[in-house]
């Protein structure tokens, strides 16, 4: 399966956060890796988007756009650090 890099997250995350989140640091709940979200692996050829840790491959986030909302699940991220 092909995937996009984490820069693809700039669009959907801009609907929630005020800053460019692709430069934010995220900590993977599975392996503890801390990396900018731009390094994440974005599997977009799926019912939603599955965003995976570049280090261990576990799921950091999912995005599902339904008819009336965007649902973001972030259970695989234990911390986000946003440059100010």
């Amino acid at each position: 399966m092909t995937h996009l890099d984490g820069n693809a997250l700039a669009g959907p995350l801009s609907e929630v956060f005020r800053d460019d989140m692709t430069t934010a640091l995220g900590r993977c709940a599975s392996c503890g890796d801390v990396s900018v979200l731009a390094e994440a692996l974005v599997y977009d050829a799926a019912p939603g988007w599955a965003v995976r840790c570049h280090a261990c491959g576990d799921v950091l986030m999912t995005f599902v756009r339904t008819l009336d909302r965007l649902r973001i699940d972030m259970r695989g991220l234990t911390a986000l650090e946003i440059p100010s």
């Binding site: 399966m1 599997y43 050829a45 799926a46 939603g48 599955a50 995976r52 491959g57």
Partner: peptide
């Protein structure tokens, strides 16, 4: 037959 997946094969 489109290929969809939430992760690597």
């Amino acid at each position: 037959f489109p290929v969809l997946s939430a992760g690597p094969t």
